[in-house]
Design a protein around this nucleic acid. Structure first.
Lengths: 333, 333
DNA sequence: AAAAAATATGGTAACGTTACCATATTCAGC
DNA sequence: GCTGAATATGGTAACGTTACCATATTTTTT
């Protein structure tokens, strides 16, 4: 592979001049530029960004560390981030932690070694250490979707407490009084916040919370299935269920069907996270839709502007979530 | 940030010795190793892989260039690739071309500059040039999902011709004779192959092909909608429709519903690409399911083994697709 | 006990680029 | 015609690591 030196030799200039042509930086006469461009063309020269990065101390690469890109919510977040990155001439490295702190730690370490300029982090757990570590190493961080306590960091997320409150109010408004909530890991802020919002709405309505109806598990279908089964064994069983994400909802739905219960006739089901209209033939679930694409896009944009030198204190950008009432919720039978 | 030199100084050894400890290469006495590890710990040393890459000429990074990660089929492919990469201690850069050759060219160029070790490519178009360019530049390439003519390259894909034949046979077996096919861009191999398989099945059954029922468009919902509308205006209208991917199917379904036609009562609908069970409450579409995750995983594995030095002629790995009959197909009314 | 192999460590240079500084030439303003 | 700014180009070194080679010591083999 030809190097900048080969191009320089062929064009009869110094390597630095070639660099100037390639990067459109500094002064180069039109005539020299032409000769250099000719040489580049003739040799098929491709600049080596590894060398460039070593010297300039920036890689024009950011990473998105999330839990599971397979979840359409995260897919959209990722796509938003990739679009923003690409637009700013950055590349995006994608990492799936599957909610495991250990996997997260491994990835973060590799990303530090890779000298990525910045990291979009969906923290596997609500602990400040990983974020601190990154900041300490001089990497810009934007936290996505979840809160991290005790640390100053840009954050882009939705207000899960408010959203859960709205969704619970919707169920209360339909006349439900026994409402179960199936949530994620208790030490993930969104899982906790959604339960908080749920409690607030119940309290507000003067409905006592039955702790047997408040379950923490995981943000996946299996957990949703299990939690639903557990809840169904309480008596009297709830007339409505709130799933803290789309996978939990699907798992819960399966458990309900297996138990011979129809939605919404026998029981109402509402969830967090909508599915894109491109995927669903006939949308059925009542949901709180978070602007996933926009979250990814804005988080990446924020990161890039930090990398562009924007100063100022860390901000928390709260995006609005929207409740979409569909056919899975109805007044209790 | 401390460098290898700082660690060396602190441990009282040469930088190269630190390198040996970090990479577990060459000989290091237990005692020296301990001292070096202590120094690394004390300084919080993080190796710089940019420098490492420049020297060793490998970045331990591969890229996946696909059309749109937002399509669950590609999401799964990507997840498979990421898992395989991660397992082999590689990172994955993700790029969305949206089927645009120009975007693809831009990405490939950046990836070359980034010195990625290998590229998993879902070619936007069936042209050999981009693949040749990459190979010429010394980058390993594995082509995913689509055929590229006139070039020797590892390929992982399904047999679209056979799969389309099977799906068409299924419809023929139900008694359909007027079957439409809504496909993707004509110069994308899968779009072409699916039409080819469709033709073969019809021919085999002695059913003449009505060219008005063979449509090429795009692999997206909008195109599916449009094509379906066009097809519905032919008379007599088809009794079954074959969509060349899941997005086309959704678009077609919308058009059908808008036209007041019920599936499968008024018209049967079958498609390529299944949706993961985690996403769909009640699977409805008859589909040919391609092993998306496995495709991504195997393609990445192949790439890594090439990077590991495996020689031998380029292979074409054909994965089996599976027909899943559900409720969207039935005998013509 | 000598020779060969394994273990342990280090010096030097190079990977390909750009930051930094220096110098020469041209141009504008008065 | 002189001065200062703008334009144009280059030399040197450095980014942080590892490849390559050299050397010294210890262990094994015969």
């Amino acid at each position: 592979m030809p190097t900048i030196r080969d191009v320089a030799r062929r064009a009869g200039v110094a390597p630095i001049t070639v660099s100037r042509v390639v990067n459109s930086s500094g002064y180069v006469s039109p005539e020299t530029r032409r000769r250099v461009e000719e040489a580049i063309e003739a040799l098929g020269y491709v600049p080596n960004s590894v060398a460039r990065s070593l010297r300039s101390k920036q890689t024009r690469t950011i990473a998105l560390v999330l839990t599971d890109m397979t979840n359409p919510f995260w897919t959209l977040v990722a796509r938003g981030a990739e679009d923003a990155a690409s637009q700013g001439n950055f590349n995006l490295i994608l990492c799936n932690t599957d909610e495991s702190e250990e996997k997260q730690a491994r990835y973060l370490n590799v990303l530090l070694e890779k000298q990525v300029d910045g990291i979009l982090l969906v923290p596997a757990r609500s602990r400040p250490e990983p974020v601190r570590l990154l900041q300490q190493q001089g990497v810009e961080v934007v936290v996505l979707d979840r809160r991290v306590p005790e640390v100053q960091v840009d954050t882009v997320r939705c207000d899960s407490v408010a959203a859960a409150r709205d969704l619970t109010r919707h169920l209360l408004g339909l006349g439900h009084r026994r409402i179960a909530i199936l949530s994620g890991p208790p030490d993930v802020s969104t899982a906790a916040d959604r339960v908080t919002g749920y409690r607030q709405a119940l309290e507000e309505a003067g409905v006592p919370v039955d702790e047997r109806l408040v379950l923490f598990g995981g943000f996946n279908q299996g957990a949703g299935f299990q939690m639903m089964r557990t809840v169904l064994s309480t008596s009297p069983r709830p007339t409505a269920v709130l799933a803290a994400n789309n996978f939990i909802a699907i798992g819960a739905f399966r458990a309900l069907r297996e138990a011979g219960l129809a939605v919404p006739v026998d029981i109402s089901l509402a969830a967090f996270d909508d599915l894109p209209a491109t995927l669903v033939l006939e949308p059925f679930l009542t949901v709180v839709a978070q602007p996933a694409y926009s979250m990814g896009r804005q988080a990446a944009a924020r990161l890039l502007s930090r990398l562009g030198g924007e100063a100022g204190p860390p901000q928390e950008i709260l995006l609005p979530a929207e409740i979409i009432v569909r056919r899975s919720t109805a007044p209790p039978g």
